[in-house]
Design a protein around this nucleic acid. Structure first.
Lengths: 348, 348
DNA sequence: TTTTGGCACTCTCCGGGCCAAAGTGCTACC
DNA sequence: GGTAGCACTTTGGCCCGGAGAGTGCCAAAA
């Protein structure tokens, strides 16, 4: 072999065949089986030689001497790069997804249904999160007195997302005070990014205290109560399909930790944003999540940003075992990402 | 034995001892082990006799001849009746629960935290659902134009629960029309039960069509769009702690179905309301859920209504394996139910 | 030089046989 | 009524041996 680390056409064919059968059977694949099931009449011995080379290059491992070979993360990586691009979605998936998502008007609902349909289509967990980043522009706010110093704040953003938050204040404001405050914010800050609103509001409270004394005091009170606070991120994360993981042939003890991790929705959000926050175009496949989350050794993330036009509104992904139907899942994620843009773009 | 089906003090003691050790070890318990671990110096032979009687009365079963005995549902039922009342909560649980729930102002948040803390304290799944029954009294509604025939409806109820819903209408109403409509509803129906509002509104749309023509037409449009529709029940159901089930020593295949069932939150809600909708005072323990949900054979529901004063605002429960720490869990559920009343009562 | 066939060796995965441990039922005895 | 003893059953662990699948290496064929 002229270049030991290099992959020629024969090596490629054998490697993908190994990955395919390993995904299908879940058992280490040996040279004999491969030569029988594959059409090209290569003898077991030849395949053995190639496998030996591939093992040396880090694409294959043996669980023990004299067992078949098992693909490494590197092999999956290569396999995914190989099939990506030429994959096309199946008709069944397409209609299932379209039917589920058709007629969705707001982002929340879309994401919720997405996590559901992704868990159905793939053999993993469907995840969808709404973007609660700094990109939310304010549409308007609304305050409602609830008695006993309690006030309900409703914040509506341009993207149609609603955040409600019950606050307890130190003083009791009456409804007309609340209306005045809401009007002030709506008139001055419509279209602003929420975090900017907070900064500017804070500044004005400091500086213009003298002028509109009562109004500013009320605003300060509301601000301190958290009227515009971080918008309860847990509410925008949808995880579904945990049942797909249970009953898998992974080590049982690790699985428990994994499910526990999936329940801590903030960590899932961190995971997604860590891998998907760039302005990437298409689906990204991350193999081997153990760097971000140790429990996720042997798991794969297939995700894409959910965009409307140029603006990133959230992320959607499947988290599943390395042994998964990549083609199927990748095309599904990609298709949903396109639908997201299409369905939500026409009503903006 | 004078009365074959009857349970005397000795039988009771042995039965509870059997249940205790079975819960602890998970293995069928035999006469010899029991006589060794128990202080009262009864010989294995005596215990065998008692066990034989208990088996005949339906409290115990044998997995096979010459194995130890395993408690039946009937035994668990008896066991729970026996310990209920004299149970007191542990200090550790009490502080954990108080710390988690302290400072909660609205029902939603309370329920969410409850499902979390219940899953921590017990070895099962913590469930909490908000009451979306007919008891919600309207505080006010609010409509906001979103462009492109889309309108956002926000419904606030007396209990502080907010429901938002994005609708698409057939005509495009402008914001002042929407405000007029919202004012009409708020002035006429504040304090009404939501379902009554719907009925009455429907009636008025029919009858008073002539009088305020424009307003009524707008109201009809909003009504048809679902402004007051069923308030997305899924949002009020919190399930946490599925990880506690994984890694249990149950049959693996059934477990998958169970987790799938737990993900269908509507079915969980049905389950809870089926067992908890009565005006019961305290914690209820339902042993053997297979009648309601076949996948839940060998599972137990420990639940209580979440009330504020006399009004039922939701339900909270733990779903776990029959082999669970009943005392621990029962006291925790009971304690949280009390806290619910206490914490939310003072701010009404 | 590359591919193939052959051969010896290694591991894992059952199935069978065997033994100890734990449990039951029954009978006889205090 | 409670206890002790005894014969019998069932399970689980352990060891062994054979079948199946796979590897590595070497020599022969293409």
């Amino acid at each position: 072999m002229p270049n030991p680390g290099q992959i020629g056409p024969r090596e490629r064919e054998i490697l993908t065949a190994i990955v395919d059968t390993y995904i299908a059977t879940g058992e280490p694949v040996g040279s004999r089986t491969l030569s029988r099931h594959n059409k090209d009449g290569l003898s077991p011995a030849t395949i053995r030689n190639v496998m030996s080379d591939l093992a040396e290059s880090g694409f294959l491992e043996q669980p023990h001497t004299s067992a078949g070979r098992v693909p490494t993360s590197q092999a999956y990586r290569y396999y995914v790069d190989q099939i990506s691009g030429k994959a096309t979605i199946s008709a069944a998936d397409q209609t299932l997804i379209s039917d589920t998502l058709q007629g969705t008007v707001d982002v929340q609902e879309f994401l919720e249904r997405t996590s559901h349909v992704l868990s159905l289509v793939s053999s993993g967990v469907g995840v969808a999160i709404g973007n609660v980043g700094p990109k939310n522009a304010l549409e308007h706010v609304y305050f409602s007195r609830q008695g006993n110093n309690r006030v309900l704040a409703v914040v509506v953003t341009k993207s149609g997302v609603v955040h409600d938050r019950m606050m307890r204040l130190e003083r009791d404001l009456d409804q007309s005070d609340l209306n005045t405050a809401a009007n002030y914010i709506n008139e001055n800050f419509r279209g602003w990014i929420i975090s900017q609103v907070k900064t500017e509001l804070c500044r004005r409270i400091e500086h213009e205290r003298s002028e509109y004394d009562r109004l500013m005091k009320n605003l300060e009170e509301l601000y301190k109560g958290g009227a515009l606070a971080a918008e309860e991120p847990a509410k925008n994360i949808f995880v579904e399909g945990v049942a797909n993981l249970v009953g898998n042939d992974q080590d049982r003890l690790r699985l428990r930790d994994l499910v526990k991790t999936l329940e801590e929705k903030e960590r899932v959000a961190d995971l997604l944003s860590a891998y998907l926050d760039t302005r990437q175009e298409a689906v990204r496949v991350v193999i081997g999540l153990e760097e971000a989350v140790p429990e996720m050794r042997n798991f794969v993330l297939i995700g894409a940003p959910a965009r409307v036009g140029e603006e990133m509104r959230g992320s959607l992904a499947v988290i599943g075992p390395t042994r998964m139907d990549y083609q199927h899942t990748i095309t599904a994620v990609s298709y949903i990402a396109q639908l997201f843009d299409k369905l939500l773009n026409e009503n903006t």
